[in-house]
Each structure stands twice: as structure tokens, then as C-alpha cells.
């Protein structure tokens, strides 16, 4: 069953002058069709300004479609009476870790969501504990968020969303402001959620290596979905990705350059291990 389904989604920003007359209209999303099934790990790629963040905000009923519909777990996001159900079903993690942590103690921050949902006190405690454990941050529960590294803060943010018991978690460039080790730990936590907890994950990013393990990838450009497929299918099209201002994972690029030189390598090599194995076959 589709947990998220965007059907011909159009979103327009209308800029107005001082008197409130529309000056110009920017189409941020242009007939976007994206569907995500329960338990899937979906990556959404695109350079800055491609509309991927605007899309994410629709899944959480922060923005509403100008045209088309967004259905989250059977609920239309424009249905005002279900706004809070939509938001607790599709939890959202944002880019800047400092601007989304509300509590002054890690565990209190994770408890914020359940508090808002009116969960009884005893259950809040058990949810906080299991969520922090799921992202490997349980030992930091009494710490002040200010004392944590960027990667740790993002894991706390993820735990904060998990504690709301969502069916699906959307991460809007969660690693854009982190250093490589922070990125690694956050990506590991996200993959763990999908593998172990069977959580549906929608990861929005411009780092290609973070979505090599995704089930499916959507590539966005100028508000449209321009490519769609498995990582192997997507990353075998190096030239097209480049024309979309995107990169490919390091091993994929080397394989592609070798192929250009005439080495018979298969399409869509994604990891170092694969590349090494394939090259050895060529000897």
C-alpha cells in the first residue's frame, strides 16, 4: 500500500508587491508524481533549488498543493481536520540541527512530540527510551543538546520524530550541515531505522553516496521529477546526472571513465567492493 502518494502535484509561489498585487509566479513544483510504499527507503535527489525541499514540506502539511493532491496514509493533506494526524504519521527532520531541538535536555526534547500528542506520562518515558536507543543516543539522555556534536544532534532530532510513532519519516537534507563523520553516523542511523525497525524512509539529499542503498531514487530538477528508478539504473546515467548539476558516487565515476576507455565493466557500479570485484574479473 502507498504510504505517501503525490498525484500531479503543482505548487506555485506568488510574489506580491507592497500593495498585495501579484508580481510574478514561480512554479516550485510542476506536476510531480511520487509514490512511496510501506517499508521502502526512497531517496530524492536534486541540486539546491530543484524543489525537493518544497516537496518534503507538502508531505507534512506545512505547504498545501496549488493543484493536485498529496495523500499520506489515506489522508488528504488539505483536509484541515486531519492536519495533526498527517504530521504525526509523516514525521519530519530538518536540515539545521540547532533550529529544531526544543528541549534543554536530550530526553526532554525527544519527549516534546509525544507531549504534544497527549500521550500519557508513563508511555512518554518508554517511547523516549526506545527512540533514543534506536538511534544509539540513549547514553546521552541527560546531556544538554548544546554539548553534542552535529551528528549527535541530528540523531536526537530523529529520535524526537520516532517518539511520535510515525509510519514514515522524511529527512530534508539532514546531513547538509555536518562534517563527514557526522554524516556517516546519521546515515548509519537512518539505514538502521529502515533495516531494523522497518520504518519507511524518505531521504532528501544532494549527497549521492547516501542513497546508494535506497530501494528507489527520484531525481528532481526545476520542480519536476526527471529521473526515477533503482540506484543502479539512476547512477549508470552519469552524463545526464552531470547535466542536472549532480555528482555520482566515486566508484561509479571511476567505472564510467574506465568504460569510456574500453574496459568492459557492467553498468551502475555503486560501491568500492563492486568495482574492485569487477575489475579483477577483467584481468
Amino acid at each position: 500500500m502507498d504510504i505517501v502518494k503525490a498525484d500531479n502535484l503543482v505548487f506555485e509561489y506568488i510574489r506580491r508587491d507592497d500593495e498585495g498585487n501579484p508580481v510574478d509566479v514561480t512554479t516550485a513544483l510542476d506536476h510531480v508524481n511520487i509514490d512511496v510504499k510501506q517499508g521502502e527507503f526512497v531517496g530524492i535527489l536534486g541540486h539546491n533549488g530543484s524543489g525537493k525541499s518544497t516537496f518534503a514540506k507538502h508531505l507534512n502539511a506545512i505547504l498545501y498543493p496549488t493543484e493536485g493532491t498529496v495523500i499520506v496514509d489515506g489522508m488528504n493533506t488539505t483536509d484541515e481536520s486531519r492536519v495533526w494526524d498527517v504530521r504525526s504519521t509523516a514525521g519530519m527532520v530538518f536540515q539545521n540541527p540547532d533550529n529544531q531541538i526544543i528541549g534543554q535536555v536530550v530526553e526532554e526534547d525527544v519527549g516534546f512530540g509525544p507531549e504534544n500528542l497527549g500521550v500519557p506520562t508513563a508511555e512518554i518515558w518508554s517511547r523516549v527510551e526506545e527512540s533514543l536507543r534506536a538511534v544509539g543516543m540513549l547514553e546521552f539522555r541527560y546531556k544538554s543538546p548544546g554539548k553534542l556534536s552535529g551528528g549527535q544532534k541530528q540523531r536526537v532530532s530523529i529520535a524526537g520524530v520516532l517518539a511520535m510513532h510515525p509510519k514514515c519519516i522524511i529527512l530534508d537534507e539532514p546531513t547538509a550541515m555536518l562534517d563527514p563523520s557526522g554524516r556517516k553516523e546519521v546515515v548509519r542511523a537512518i539505514r538502521g531505522l529502515n533495516d531494523v525497525e522497518k520504518m519507511t524512509v524518505i531521504l532528501i539529499t544532494h549527497y549521492m553516496d547516501e542513497v546508494v542503498h535506497a530501494d528507489r531514487i527520484f531525481v528532481m530538477d526545476k520542480g519536476r521529477v526527471v529521473m526515477h528508478g533503482t540506484p543502479r539504473e539512476i547512477f549508470s546515467q552519469v552524463e545526464q546526472l552531470e547535466s542536472l548539476r549532480l555528482d555520482v558516487p566515486g566508484p561509479t565515476r571511476i567505472a564510467w571513465e574506465l568504460k569510456k576507455k574500453g574496459i568492459p565493466l557492467p553498468d551502475g557500479i555503486l560501491t568500492c567492493e563492486e568495482l574492485v570485484k569487477e575489475i579483477q574479473k577483467c584481468r
Binding site: N60, W84, R87, M92, F94, N116, V161, M164
Partner: peptide
């Protein structure tokens, strides 16, 4: 936005 997303 983050608070609204967490149902505040």
C-alpha cells in the same frame, strides 16, 4: 516549522 511538524 519544526515545532508544528512535531504537532505543537
Amino acid at each position: 516549522m519544526a515545532m508544528e511538524a512535531r504537532c505543537y
